[in-house]
Computed example of a mutant assay.
Amino acid sequence: MFSTRRAGAVEGASDSEVDAPSGRRADPKPGRRLPRRLVHLYSGLVLYGLSMGLQLRAGLGLEPWSVLNQGISRHTGLSIGTVTIVSGVLILLLWIPLRQRPGLGTVSNVVILGLVMDATLTLVPEITTLAVRIPLLAFAILLNGMATGLYISARFGPGPRDGLMTGLHRRTGRPLRLVRTCIEVAVLTVGFVLGGSVGVGTVLYALAIGPLAQFSLRFFTIGGQSGRVVASSEPAPASAPAPLS
């Protein structure tokens, strides 16, 4: 989940449609887009938490942060959703030296993902049949990609983990991909040592989530926000808050 904003002028926009200092296309009716952005944010976060729970039920490997949270859960006795919330809060503390500023999407991310994940695990029983687990894994990853595009398009601030990534990128000057890779390898390694589930689902998620999220973001982008999207840790003006990760 990382913060996004456009770089440079927007292709196909006339001079009157672009904010000169920032190069962003001006949104002629920002107030009318707020309800839609809120729907994108909260539906995206709910679906994201649902996808995390379903991927765990598939039992074929989790994405790196869930591997870590599951490992911690096994050693503390806390539910994985509770661990997800607590770890999100702790990660936000790391934002302080990085001078990152949370938004509505940041706080919502911390709370909603863990709650929805626990609710999903309560409602969906454990599955032992491989013929069911494989398509469930594929569905969970597809759902995660769609959810990612939804909440990024809302543009309400980065989630805690992606804010950490973009903050380190800005402070160290290292390439964003390198920073992300280092964080996720470290998280995955610690999670695996603690007993988190690593498997084919972990690899499939790593390979598929980028293209799926990119396609989903293009599909769900709200009018007036088109253009190339890149990571940023800086918030946009109040009338057009920077979107998520």
Rank of each mutant, 00 (worst) to 15 (best):
Leu123Val: 03
Leu204Ala: 11
Gly59Tyr: 02
Pro35His: 04
Ala236Thr: 08
Ile127Asn: 05
Leu34Gly: 08
Glu126Asn: 11
Leu94Glu: 00
Thr202Phe: 05
Leu90Asp: 00
Ile209Arg: 04
Glu17Val: 12
Gly114Cys: 08
Pro241Ala: 06
Leu94Arg: 05
Arg74Met: 09
Thr84Pro: 00
Thr84Ile: 03
Thr148Ile: 06
Val185Lys: 13
Thr221Ala: 11
Gly210Trp: 10
Ser233Cys: 13
Arg33His: 14
Ile112Thr: 10
Gly105Val: 01
Ser153Tyr: 08
Leu113Asn: 05
Leu150Glu: 04
Ile72Lys: 02
Ala213Gln: 11
Leu176Asp: 10
Gly114Ser: 09
Val39Gly: 10
Ser73Leu: 01
Gly88Trp: 06
Ser197Phe: 07
Val190Gly: 05
Gly224Gln: 05
Leu56Ala: 03
Leu178Phe: 10
Ala213Thr: 02
Ser3Tyr: 13
Arg101Asp: 10
Ser245Gln: 08
Gly105Phe: 06
Ala147Leu: 03
Leu212Gly: 07
Gly157Pro: 10
Gly210Pro: 12
Ala147Ile: 00
Arg6Val: 01
Pro102His: 14
Ser79Trp: 05
Ser108Trp: 00
Gly105Asp: 07
Arg36Ala: 15
Thr221Glu: 15
Gly81Asp: 03
Ser226Lys: 15
Arg171Ser: 10
Val39Thr: 14
Pro158Asp: 02
Gly201Lys: 08
Gln70Ala: 03
Arg25Val: 13
Leu47Tyr: 11
Phe215His: 15
Val190Met: 06
Val10Glu: 00
Leu168Pro: 10
Gly105Tyr: 04
Ala154Ser: 10
Ala186Ile: 03
Gly49Met: 03
Leu176Arg: 11
Ser3Lys: 13
Arg37Leu: 10
Ala240Gln: 10
Gly224Asp: 07
Leu50Val: 06
Pro235Ala: 14
Pro35Cys: 01
Ala208His: 06
Leu212Tyr: 11
Phe215Asn: 14
Ser233Ala: 15
Gly159Trp: 01
Ala20Arg: 15
Gly8Pro: 00
Leu115Ile: 01
Ile112Arg: 00
Gly77Arg: 14
Leu41Cys: 05
Ala58Pro: 01
Pro243Glu: 04
Gly49Asn: 08
Asn144Tyr: 05
His169Trp: 13
Ala240Arg: 12
Leu34Thr: 11
Arg218Lys: 15
Gln214Ala: 14
Gln225Gly: 13
Gln55Asp: 07
Leu142Asn: 02
Leu178Ser: 13
Leu143Ile: 02
Val179Phe: 03
Ser79Leu: 07
Arg174Pro: 07
Asp27Leu: 09
Ser197Val: 11
Met117Thr: 09
Leu194Tyr: 12
Asp15Phe: 12
Thr82Cys: 07
Gly53Phe: 03
Thr82Gly: 05
Phe215Gln: 15
Thr76His: 09
Pro102Glu: 14
Thr189Cys: 13
Leu113Asp: 06
Glu17Leu: 11
Cys182Ala: 15
Met117His: 11
Ile85Tyr: 09
Arg37Ser: 09
Leu38Ser: 12
Leu98Arg: 06
Ala238Glu: 11
Glu63Tyr: 09
Gln225Lys: 13
Arg228Thr: 13
Gly53Arg: 02
Thr76Cys: 09
Ala147Phe: 02
Thr172Val: 02
Arg74Ala: 13
Asn69Tyr: 01
Leu130Pro: 12
Leu176Ile: 14
Phe220Glu: 09
Ala58Gln: 04
Phe215Met: 15
Arg5Pro: 07
Pro64Asn: 09
Ala138Pro: 06
